[in-house]
Simulated scan of single mutants.
Amino acid sequence: MSVDTAATSLSPRRRELLDAAVHVVADDGLRGLTHRAVDRRAGLPEGSCSAYFRTRRALQTSLAEYVAAALAADVADLAEQLRGLSGADDRAAGLTAQLFLRWLDERELLLAKLELSLEASRDAELATVLTTSRSQLVGVVAGIMVAQGRDHATERAEALVASFDGILVAALPKPDPERRDFLSGSLRLLMAALGAPAGPPA
């Protein structure tokens, strides 16, 4: 994923520590996220992580921002590739499937995002970080809808982003050949449906 793009404003050491934190959360869940665990994963002396992220709260919040930025960078790249394509165009579903397969093959960021999203349901500060990121993502997708001349662009975009999340979660445990077929079929159905004319929102 576009970790490098997302981390351009970070110092090399902070980026190294947050990369390690992503792997810790992917392997052990958010409960396993400690300064010591990050230091061990990064191969750095004990105390390195706490020197940059003084508290676990600071580490967790910075990780949420880092993961959200990495995923948003990938989505922005995809939006450029989709420019001019309709939701019913098989190329749109194919390009989206390529990104999702990469996320699933390199699943650490995706797993970290899922762990952080669950925690955000109980943590207002974390929810703010992820809600801001999600709003930006919906805005990118809505922009594609507007460019295609679709009505109710924001409602469509919110439904599409939520549906993408569900498809990714459902695809995670599937074996590779089955996962590819599932993604391709699901995305074609979803994007064709959202590209169809919509009635007024309820």
Rank of each mutant, 00 (worst) to 15 (best):
P45L: 04
Q81C: 14
L118S: 09
L189G: 12
L30Q: 02
D19W: 03
V3Y: 02
A192P: 08
L18E: 04
P197I: 09
G84P: 02
E46F: 08
R15V: 12
V169E: 10
D77K: 09
G84L: 04
A20L: 02
D181Q: 15
R102D: 14
L130Y: 03
K113M: 11
S121L: 10
E16D: 08
A202H: 08
A153M: 06
E155D: 12
Y66H: 14
L109E: 13
V22D: 00
A120Y: 01
G32F: 03
R41H: 10
L95H: 00
L111P: 03
R134T: 13
A157V: 07
D89V: 12
L189Q: 12
R102S: 15
T132K: 12
V169M: 04
H152W: 09
V67K: 02
G94F: 00
S62F: 05
L82T: 03
D39V: 14
R41S: 09
E125I: 11
D74F: 07
G43K: 04
S163V: 11
G87M: 06
V75S: 09
P200V: 14
A202C: 09
A6K: 02
E178S: 14
G185Q: 01
T55L: 02
A192Q: 13
V75D: 14
A198I: 09
S48Q: 06
A120I: 08
Q136A: 13
L190M: 05
G87C: 10
L110W: 11
V22G: 00
L104D: 05
L137W: 07
S163I: 07
S186P: 00
P200G: 10
V38K: 00
V141C: 02
D105L: 12
V3N: 01
L99C: 08
W103E: 13
G195W: 04
L99N: 01
D176C: 07
G84E: 04
T154M: 11
A153K: 00
V22A: 01
V67A: 10
L82E: 01
G199V: 11
L82I: 03
A72G: 10
S184Y: 03
T154G: 09
L172V: 12
V24W: 01
A68W: 07
L110Q: 05
G43R: 06
A58Q: 13
G149V: 06
Q98W: 00
A198Y: 05
A51E: 01
L10G: 04
P177Y: 02
V141K: 02
G199A: 08
L183G: 02
L160Q: 08
R180Y: 03
A64V: 10
A97D: 05
R31T: 13
D105M: 14
A64D: 08
I167D: 05
A58F: 06
G149K: 01
V169S: 08
T55C: 05
S163W: 00
H35F: 04
D77M: 05
R179V: 09
H35T: 03
S163L: 05
A88G: 15
A162L: 10
K174H: 07
G84K: 06
A170C: 13
L33N: 01
R31K: 07
Q60T: 15
L95E: 00
R150H: 12
D4F: 13
G43L: 10
G199E: 10
A127I: 04
L18S: 04
L59H: 08
L137F: 11
P173Y: 13
L189T: 10
E80M: 13
D77I: 11
A69M: 03
G185C: 03
A92Q: 04
G94S: 13
A124T: 12
L137G: 05
Y66F: 15
L172G: 06
A193P: 03
